[in-house]
Design a protein around this nucleic acid. Structure first.
Length: 449
RNA sequence: GCCGCUAUCGUCUAGGGGACUAGGACGCCGCCCUCUCACGGCGGUAACCCGGGUUCGAAUCCCGGUAGCGGUACCA
């Protein structure tokens, strides 16, 4: 089995493209196949080296490697010209100067479902000659047979007047030469497939098998774009998602893996992936579910690896202790710093939280009591020591735990949300914890009414 | 307009004529756990697009409608 991923470098790798790449990779890795990477850059205006690098970078980040390539369609002009000559010589293609207006006029005359047929001329663009009789059947692995009657298909332009070839021709020649056995791509190519099949036939070659994947839509049911949500792999990465989770999630979009389990590694996905089982209907990208999966993958990483990734993501060091007490509370890498940053950068400033906890009821008094308890807490001031000290305050005062702990939390973190209070205080250390509480106490004496 | 594709909870899906009182996951709601937020556990909410057939029996098969999407470039 030889499969290919053939993006056109007209922008960042979109999540739909990422899924196409992933499915091809899964196919190759799951069954000892070969994955060929080809850059379809025949659109000279929109293809840039920066875009190519961006796509390669996204692929690597996702953990999708390839066996051959990247090759560039633009570098195969010689071979394309040769194949074009072959079709011209055999009468399967002809020169024509017919314009879009000519095509329109033809349809006005013959009916708007009648495919355009041109007259052979001595120069001009090159059109493929589509037979009037019969039909071309696309035997799609996912969709079954789709029939296209030849009389409905226009003679497609396959090369410009300057000899440069167009997509539907180049793609067929390239797939043929690369020995591709399975073409797996988005459903937007389904209507183009009969034209490509006709090129194979004209060349006297055996076409590959095709599988057209359902498209991915945004939350509003419309085509996914930059307007709604993170649509590119780079954006997902910047938003703190793990490649493991993105792979897992996009694999799930459109593939019926299993009805009772949805948490998979790349390897497991490769083992389970079945092209025939891919769904036929378009799917909506749901960031909520990605977040959920990301949280699971995050915890699956283990503390060492998670720390490594968080240090890379935040560009900070010495995060291990903070990661340890925050791991179960975050779903993305981006969630970490807002939750645990106070451990390094000092308490956040949240006056509302301060008012709500420390200024309210006997918050100041309880905070003072906690301060004394922590000052007297046993060495080594580890989590159990801190817990014993603070629970001692709860017991002595007969207060509800939250009434004691929340003021301490606000004093050291600045906010009402943080990792466990005992863990946080122990990690800060006695000196720093007392310093922050003292500072909160003096602040309270000034602002609490 | 024309040529195609698709149609199960809000979302992703399971379902291949009787096992469907339609299963799972995310979300949402409630409860438990609990120092906040999470994690985890338990329970709940919620769907077969519509209309005709075929059949003893249809979410499943066929036809039509409707809707969504794609293609319709000398783009890919």
């Amino acid at each position: 089995m030889r499969v290919r991923f053939a993006p056109s470098p007209t922008g960042a790798l979109h999540i739909g493209g990422a899924r196409t790449a992933l499915y091809n990779w899964l196919l190759a890795r799951g069954g000892g196949g070969t994955l060929v990477l080809r850059i379809e850059d025949t659109d000279r205006e929109r293809s840039t080296p920066e875009n190519v690098e961006q796509i390669l970078d996204a692929l690597r980040w996702l953990g999708l490697d390839w066996d051959e390539g990247p090759s560039f369609q633009s570098e195969r002009a010689g071979r394309h010209a040769e194949a074009l000559e072959q079709l011209l010589a055999s009468g399967h293609a002809y020169h024509s100067n017919a314009t879009a207006e000519d095509v329109k006029a033809y349809k006005q005359l013959h009916g708007d479902n009648r495919g355009f047929r041109g007259q052979a001329e001595s120069d001009g663009a090159v059109r493929l000659r589509v037979p009037d009789q019969g039909e071309t059947v696309v035997a799609d692995v996912i969709r079954g047979e789709t029939r296209f009657r030849h009389e409905h298909i226009d003679d497609p332009v396959i090369a410009r007047a300057d000899g440069s070839v167009l997509y539907n021709f180049a793609v067929a020649v390239d797939d043929l030469d690369a020995g591709i056995t399975h073409v797996v791509r988005g459903e937007d190519h389904l209507s183009n497939t009969p034209k490509q099949l006709l090129v194979f036939e004209a060349l006297g070659a055996q076409p590959p098998l095709y599988a057209h994947l359902p498209l991915l839509h945004g939350p509003d049911g419309r085509k996914l774009s930059k307007r709604h949500g993170a649509a590119s792999v780079q954006e997902l990465r910047a938003a703190g998602y793990l490649p493991e989770a993105v792979d897992n999630y996009i694999a799930l979009l459109g593939a019926g893996f299993s009805s009772d389990e949805e948490f998979f590694s790349l390897g497991e996905l490769a083992q389970r992936f079945r092209l025939e089982r891919v769904s036929k209907n378009p799917a909506v990208f749901d960031e909520q579910k990605l977040r959920h999966l990301n949280g699971r993958h995050l915890r699956e990483l283990g503390l060492d690896e998670l720390t490594r990734r968080l240090e890379q993501f935040t560009r900070r060091e010495g995060l291990r202790g903070a990661v340890e007490i925050s791991a179960e509370k975050i779903q993305t890498l981006a969630d970490f710093w807002p939750l645990a940053g106070f451990l390094f950068d000092g308490p956040a400033e949240d006056e509302a939280a301060f008012q709500r906890t420390i200024c309210k009821d006997d918050g100041i008094e309880l905070l003072g009591a906690s301060r004394e308890a922590l000052a007297a807490a046993a060495e080594p001031f580890s989590v159990p020591d801190v817990e014993a000290a603070l629970r001692g305050v709860v017991d002595a005062r007969g207060a509800k735990p939250g009434k004691v702990f929340q003021p301490v939390r606000v004093a050291i973190a600045g906010t009402t949300v943080s990792p466990g209070i005992f863990e946080s205080v122990a990690l800060l250390g006695r000196l720093e914890a007392l310093r922050r509480i003292d500072s909160a106490l003096s602040h309270a004496s000034q602002i609490c009414a």
